[in-house]
Design a protein around this nucleic acid. Structure first.
Lengths: 248, 248
DNA sequence: CACACTATGTGGGATAACACACAGATAATA
DNA sequence: TATTATCTGTGTGTTATCCCACATAGTGTG
């Protein structure tokens, strides 16, 4: 998913580079150097909460190796992920949309790095109405696509199909085929019971698509997973590609 | 929901006025007269399709008395509404977000009127970076809130709770307490079977909250419906109010 | 008025997911 | 190494929703 062909000069050689984030990788022109210089590299730990309902977000986060879950926590305490954000996107669209806060939360679901930008700097850049604005708006549409696809998927597809979709989209945001996460975490992201994930994962293991041990899931057969996944994975992936490839 | 207190001059006295749409009601300053003049009043019929996956949208629609459903149609043919748009919003955010098309569809679910604006005119105005842009971006966030709340709601709440939520939000967009719609239509919007709606509606009727006859549903006790509804109705309503009240 | 069409009501059986309870296995720590 | 935490596996029973079939009741039309 991370196409950096349009960006020969910024591809990461050093362990950390803003170019590892797909949106930031577009900003290689000289005019963006001052902006890039203001990015702050942060290390996000599993479970870190980037925002909560009603709390003013202070920074936008551009993940590189981390993955963040946007989710809603119900009054009952149950929760459900409505979208995920990895190196293809940015956490904090409400900053430039104007709301400042949202009714949902953002939590780190895979530890790793991200570059963050202070909210006023992001807003100033957004209102220059240039490439950054176009990128952020297109990404906003990609995010809306994810949310509405999740709504339809939650309605019509089985836990096993959804687990496949979720593993595939997580894999796209990871550098390794071994994902570090417990079944408990996956369950809370999908908003189902842990036992349901145990059962679905058992099926996928028996089919030879994945293997796992306590806290780790390895994808052995990506194609196999796709065959068991619902269409939602592809719909979202293709829409992200369409919206965020060759933005000028 | 349609607070027009900030707009004393444009409140509808004539049967049709752009001021009946909450977003358009903000545009009462002299500078917007040329824009308002370019709005075209259209009559939308139940079932009209405003856009489909992959098809370039030609106009943005600002409903006044009509209600439009944004939904996704699965490969299986099943569908699910991901958000509704009435006099509080606009259909076609993908025009200014940059995608042009979406993976979902938009269909009229309550016949009525809307004002439409040719896509280039909308885009030009958006890029003036003034009030219209701020309104559209805030509405975009409200729409995203609806989508993600629908995702969580589909995961955790019962058909009856969701029916209450849906009736309440439809009522907010209607001038009458009698909604013109079949149980079949409601079922396809919520993405459940018609029998499920028959059963849930029967319960609400027995409780005295609604009455209905072939093709018509009347809300008798709004408070009763709220008591049976999930929290999702209020979350979305309050967020729309917060985001779209007193925008300057 | 008769008819066709569509909407609504209801029942029986299947199934996916839930809730709870607990056993076994693995990792972290003392 | 022993102990404790936590994670994973499994069973039983329950429930919401689905699927299918068909009965009943409105509504519009010729």
């Amino acid at each position: 998913m991370q196409k950096v062909a349009h960006l020969p000069t910024m591809v990461a050689r050093s362990p950390h580079s803003p170019g590892q984030n797909h949106l930031l990788s577009y900003l290689n022109a000289a005019e963006f150097k001052p902006l890039i210089a203001k990015l702050e590299l942060v290390n996000l730990l599993l479970g870190d909460v980037l925002y909560e309902p009603g709390k003013q977000l202070q920074h936008a986060y551009f993940p590189t190796t981390s993955i963040v879950s946007l989710h809603y926590i119900m009054e009952s305490g149950a929760s459900a992920e409505t979208a995920g954000v990895g190196n293809e996107g940015v956490v904090g669209v409400s900053l430039f949309l104007g709301g400042g806060t949202t009714s949902g939360s953002a939590m780190v679901r895979t530890g790793g790095h991200a570059y963050r930008l202070e909210r006023h700097l992001l807003n100033d850049e957004f209102h220059r109405s240039g490439l950054v604005q176009r990128l952020l708006l297109r990404y906003t549409q990609a995010l809306a696509t994810q949310m509405s696809q999740t709504a339809a998927c939650n309605r019509h597809h089985t836990v096993e199909q959804q687990l496949c979709r979720w593993l595939l989209s997580t894999l796209d945001r990871s550098s390794s085929s071994e994902l570090v996460m417990t079944q408990e975490l996956v369950a809370s992201m999908l908003g189902v019971r842990r036992e349901g994930i145990t059962e679905a994962a058992g099926n996928l293991k028996r089919a030879g698509f994945i293997s796992y041990r306590r806290g780790h899931i390895s994808v052995l057969d990506r194609t196999g997973l796709q065959s068991q996944s619902c269409e939602c994975y592809n719909v979202v992936k293709m829409e992200i590609d369409r919206l965020l490839t060759n933005v000028t």
